[in-house]
Amino acid sequence: MQRLARLFDLLAGDPQAERAVPPTGFTARLTTFTAAAMAFLAVFAMALSLATGRLADRWASELARTSTLRISAPEGQMEAQTRAALEVLRTTPGVAEARPLSADEQRALLEPWFGPDLPVEALPIPQLIEIVEDRAGYDPSGLRARLQAEVPGAVLDDHTRWREPLVEAAGRLRLLGMVSMALIAAATAAMITLAAQAALAANAQVIRVLRLVGARDTYIARAFVRRFTLRAVIGAALGTLAGIVAVLLLPRTDAAGGFLTGLGFRGWHWLWPLVIPPLAGAVAYAATRAAALRSLRAQS
């Protein structure tokens, strides 16, 4: 509560303390620009993190509920084996739905590799059956044993072997997004620290005079801290706004869009970028205060 009160005091400001430090146009604009650029990048890092989070969740849930049965059989036996496999699946507890993919669907799956107009019927490609599990799920070992006995050409793929690396990759991307945001915050802190130190060095005479007349270090620091915090908040607000507009202008998600068109915010997640300006202010406050007090200690 005391810290909160101090923050409100800071935002309310001490006009007299701030007036003691002469205005510095160039460093002010530089700090505001830096905060804006970092906030803009933070919006994208946040969007990336949230999008990969959604992707990981979708892959985890969708792939966990589906599996594929692949039937490879001589041309004359394909239909019989498909029927037999569907019968086995129909009587397997935990299987909610089993559906053989049509030739068009199989062509669509192969299209990215072989291009359009692929004569699927003329090629010895296996028949695929999509299996959707119910809530309880089925026993893959038991199903494999039954299929081995009744449909010798069937191979069950429960997606485990490629679902896990995909989910792991999406998780890593999400982590990368978070690390990016942490790095942006650290870079912002470093840049504001440098700007604050430059401002303190440029105002050495002001500091000497203030000390001579009995100003405490906290009084001197407050003038710099408020100034840099406000610049960071204003810059970050502008950068966040620009970032949100840029995300809005990204192409919309569609079936063929893939991952990149899914980059953005959904629903209440649009509120997340609003934390960036106050966060930038908090980072600027901590960085400037630490830099100012350290610098004042060194100058004494």
């Binding site: 000390r211 001579l212 007349v213 009995g214 100003a215 405490r216 270090d217 906290t218 004042l296 200690r297 004494s300």
Partner: peptide, 13 residues
């Protein structure tokens, strides 16, 4: 340092 600041309020330079 705060103590020094307080003392300087009692000394005009």
């Amino acid at each position: 340092r705060d103590g020094i600041a307080m003392v300087r309020r009692r000394i005009g330079v």
